[in-house]
Design a protein around this nucleic acid. Sequence first.
DNA 1: CCAGACGTTGTT
DNA 2: GTCTGG
DNA 3: CCAGACGTTGTT
DNA 4: GTCTGG
Length: 194
Amino acid sequence: MCGRFDLTASMDELIQEYGGVPVEQLEPCYNIAPSRNILVARQENVIGIRWLYLRWGLIPHWEDHVNTGYKLFNAVAETITEKTSFRDCFAARRCIIPATGFYEWKQADGGPNVPYRIRLKTGKPFAFAGIYNKWKPPEGGEPIESCSIITTTPNKVTRPIHDRMPVIRVPPTFMLFCTLRKSQKLKAQHVLGL
DNA sequence: CCAGACGTTGTT
DNA sequence: GTCTGG
DNA sequence: CCAGACGTTGTT
DNA sequence: GTCTGG
């Protein structure tokens, strides 16, 4: 899961890593929570990569009131193409959400919940996979754009702490590629593009 | 057909 | 808006 | 996700 | 315990 994260990287660092044109930058924050406006980057026609702030907590477009209804701050990757609330967003409106770390809570033996921060060894920023949406108030007025972070099963680092973690985009410098042996076949989920 | 749900998490 | 359950 | 609140009255 | 606000 991912219900809280931090972002302390500069806009310059983010632009260098992901491209696009700088926008106003908020104070570095170690405690970003659902319902806050968070920085995202998305691909737009004509202008290309655009940085902007969206409300964290997806509001389905049929919702009647902005203050009621579900708080969709996470979307389970395994079922995202089946869920009414996420399917169209996933097909057409994806974004990345930059972060320098995320928090997971683990209950100490019968004790209180203890937060852990998970981050890259280098301290560099990385990005969550996200989806976004536009909600128009039935009574008229300003539309609200909102987003949700996609979650998946944990990797080795996160597994001891929690059974879910955000789908992460790691900078290209952390990656390599290799060719496949004949016996290896690609499955649909390998090419989803997350 | 209409009515009602539409989500995640953790906890039990 | 769209799917599920009755 | 956590932190913090968690009400009533009369009137429409 | 459960809901709301951040």
